[in-house]
């Protein structure tokens, strides 16, 4: 056992100290109104301006397994707003829409000439998804906003 420890120690000393990237990944759907944001995201760099905290390292941000470009949190009178920017992948759009329908049912839809606005409302959470379109086809994400009601 001692010898095994020596080998492991030797191998460790020969390598570089690494960051536990997988351990830092956060699933944004786990955030609640009560979550202490700075504690929950400990170790991940952030920017803070007034009452808004923003995380922008996509290596650590997921929303139902979809990679999130950046997320900002802000508490206001209605609750906690979580605003996400996503990468413009059509597959991400299809997956997130499917997931939200599975969770909250069919959304209210407001379709315009170059955008579609989806809204899912429950007692505890409001979710809005805004995308840009060309002839009704997804071109890019605008934003995904989850409001956790106090």
């Amino acid at each position: 056992m001692k010898k095994l420890t020596i080998i492991l120690l030797f191998i460790t000393l020969c390598g570089y100290a690494q960051i536990d990237y997988k351990g830092l990944v956060k699933n944004l759907e786990d955030i609640t109104f009560e979550t202490d944001i700075k504690t929950h995201f400990k170790g991940i760099p952030f920017k803070e301006e007034y009452s808004q905290i923003e995380f922008s390292d996509e290596r650590f941000l997921r929303f139902y397994d979809i990679i999130v470009d950046k997320v900002s949190f802000e508490n206001n009178w209605g609750g906690r707003t979580m605003t996400m920017k996503l990468f413009n992948e059509k597959s991400d759009y299809n997956n997130i829409k499917t997931k939200l329908i599975e969770l909250y049912g069919e959304p209210e839809i407001n379709e315009r000439s170059s955008s579609i606005f989806y809204e899912w409302k429950t007692d505890k959470v409001n979710t809005t998804l805004r995308i840009k379109t060309e002839e009704g086809i997804f071109t890019e994400f605008d934003e995904l906003v989850v409001t956790l009601i106090q």
């Binding site: 570089y16 690494q18 960051i19 990237y21 170790g43 760099p45």
Partner: peptide, 13 residues
């Protein structure tokens, strides 16, 4: 990137 982060830590872009 990861080699530098191992020594200098994670930072924002």
């Amino acid at each position: 990137l990861e080699a530098i982060e191992a020594n200098n830590g994670l930072i924002n872009l």
